[in-house]
Amino acid sequence: MADNWTGASVASSFKHKIFYFLIKTGGRYCAYLLLYFVVASYAIVPKFRRKAYPYIEKRFGRPNFFSKFWHCYKLFLSFGKTLVDKAVFGILGKIEILSSQQDRDLCTDLYNQGKGLIFITAHCGAWQSAMAAFDFIKADKYVLYKRVKEDVDKQVYEHGNRKQNIKFIDPTGPYGGTVEMLSVLQKKSIVCVMGDRTFGSQKNEISVNFLGHSINVPGTIYRIASITQTPIVIVFFPTKSNGKFDSMILDNFVVEDNGAKITNYKEYAEKFVNALEQFTKQYPYQFFNMYDMWEGNDKKTED
């Protein structure tokens, strides 16, 4: 499947600056107040709602027009709040992580096995803030991330109040970032990847069932983990309330070396997708893939 998603911001740079100004002068709730109106203005535009429909239809069945509109509004509002919370974190430094000691102990124990650690998460909940704040293990942290030119939303550290504590590996760089990931894991670093979006060659994708229909997810990380024997933690970061988020570890495992063929790692990709499905059941309005991630796959299956 071709990469049919885009990392471009919907709102302009100017609109983002208005929110940053409101946060600086009036705080989080002042920005939330404007957000309700901004979200409504997006939700009434069919072209924006259509971006969310593929997920809404898979998650909520085929709701009527009004309930679909309502689902869209709630989804957009939740996403907007996540972006405001991220900016509040960057500008005012205010964030609260409710992750349990049990989660922290698990990650620490896995990391202490001496083979680095891989976090696989997805575009849901407060993933962007979490990348910067979930840093209780003292190790170099890398995130596989491609910043597109049209993405004008600032990252937490770009507001200038926090030191950048993560390094980025470009998935569109040389060898899709794979050599770099392998190299840093061999140096016992932590690597964080998004397990729900594909990049580049279709050869590296695995077809799995998500919300009753087939999607493709990236498979390379499972092959890398099988080589380095680095433990994988499937983790999501649901927002619990304004500015507070939790960690939700739904699985952890070590990948068996099944050779070079990427489809041999399907069982591990399924573990991720099952966890993601569990997340969407618990937090239906915190799944932020606003594109048709199923496009082409069902047709392919029928063929």
């Binding site: 060898y175 794979t178 050599v179 392998l182 580049g200 590296n204």
Partner: peptide, 11 residues
């Protein structure tokens, strides 16, 4: 060759 082959080359 692609990114996956790069890993296999290292292996």
């Amino acid at each position: 060759l692609d990114s996956l082959d790069a890993i296999e080359l290292i292996v």
